[in-house]
Design a protein around this nucleic acid. Sequence first.
RNA 1: GGCGACGUAGCCAAGUGGUCUAAGGCAGAGGUUUGCAAAACCUCCAUUCGGCGGUUCGAAUCCGCCCGUCGCCUCCA
Length: 457
Amino acid sequence: MKLYSTLTRDKRDFEPAGDAVTMYVCGITASNSSHVGHALSSVVFDVLHRYLEFRGYEVRRVQNFTDVDDKIITKANEEGLSSEEVAEKYIEEFFTDMDDLNVQRATVHPRATNEIAGILRMIEGLIEKGNAYPATDESGSVYFRVDSDNEYGKLSGRTVDELLEGVRNEIEPGKEAPADFAVWKASRPGEPAWDSPWGQGRPGWHIECSAMALEYLGETIDIHGGGLDLVFPHHENELTQSESFTGEKPFARFWLHNGLLRLDGAKMSKSLGNLVTVRDALDSNSADAIRMYILTSHYRSPLLYDEDNIHTQERAARRLRQAATAESEGNTGESVDPAPFKTRFIEAMEDDMNTPQALAAIFDLAHEINRGRDAGHNLTEAQGEMRSLVSVLGLMLAEPEASEDGLSDEDIDARIASRAEARTNRDFAAADAIRDELIEAGVAIEDGPEGTTWSRI
RNA sequence: GGCGACGUAGCCAAGUGGUCUAAGGCAGAGGUUUGCAAAACCUCCAUUCGGCGGUUCGAAUCCGCCCGUCGCCUCCA
């Protein structure tokens, strides 16, 4: 499989260094409900995980939670809760959202606050090696000395000089140089805090990920993933900390970054106030439609959130569902051969996870199955293969469930029976009225040779 | 200001030197089927890839300029 790495800026053949693929994906900061941008990133790496397993690899994926940071503390103060309670609430919500999106759990979901010991070991090691130093103003914070790594900037393609050309560079007291960043933050009274050799404090954001990757995946990991907005400073800092601490390079063999979701032309983010939460999206769209919308564009491209465009995927999803459940009307002895479509699917996925092409192959297979159905060919093998390929993309092709205020299955069956009677009596006006009523209630019906079937839409 | 990405049919979106007379989805048109529909199937739907030049036997794909959109440089998937 070829994958594009942000570090080398090209596509390269990917093989895991060890027996299992080790993958670290940056998770959320548990200070708010997850939005569709988080869903995008999670779906992308979920599909990568599923595909690698489909190709026979064992995958060890770690996705962390940042459960202590300034925003969580602010939120806790606003809501009169503890930091832990806020984090717990949004972590649970994240899992519910992701379950509903059919995103599989990572192998491990570590939380920063459970990893303090490893974080402290790492900071102490960095100080010993001269890569970090306690704040010069004795505040109790610890900073990473960017100057100690002459390769700093290699991931984001920036030099320290360029970074300093940024508009604002307030030099925090206690820093030796403006580009240095905190690995340990001294806490103020009332904030969550842990004991350390430098006093009470909490870990800096970047060091958490370095420590958790080391703890659960080792000194060198195969794939590091996250949103494109994390390249700088988060991943740049994580990289320099990890390589400085372990002395092993590379920290990550492949750096994968998904393109960002935009809304009304701007990136979806809390600070801009243009959020659509995962829950909002799931309230008006099926998980399959949301996943298909994400997967019809390449993962590295930016994606514009558009409710109408997502909704059109419902119809596309239905098309696949129909093909997967179609029943052949004859028995010619011939079978629909899925092999060429499976080959196309694999070739597409092998090329830096080209899910739009992979989906195109699935749609063509669906087309072939439908043709085979009309021709009376055997569909069993093709439909089995189709379900297998579709599941690599995490699509469920499930019938929509009955909504609480909708008609029950029994109600629907009863109405269809009345309609059948009306049709037998050639009272088409009455029959059509029942059909319109069912459509209004979200039930589509189909008259076939063996009677009427229905499905929720 | 610095760094970078993108501009393909009505809409979404692959493709990045010849297999492109450009995938797939949605929408649309005609036909088969149907009491009528729906779904399905068949056929059609960009001589063209923001504009203008250039390189090349050959460019949507490379180079230059221009126009337009967007991202990062600060918390962010």
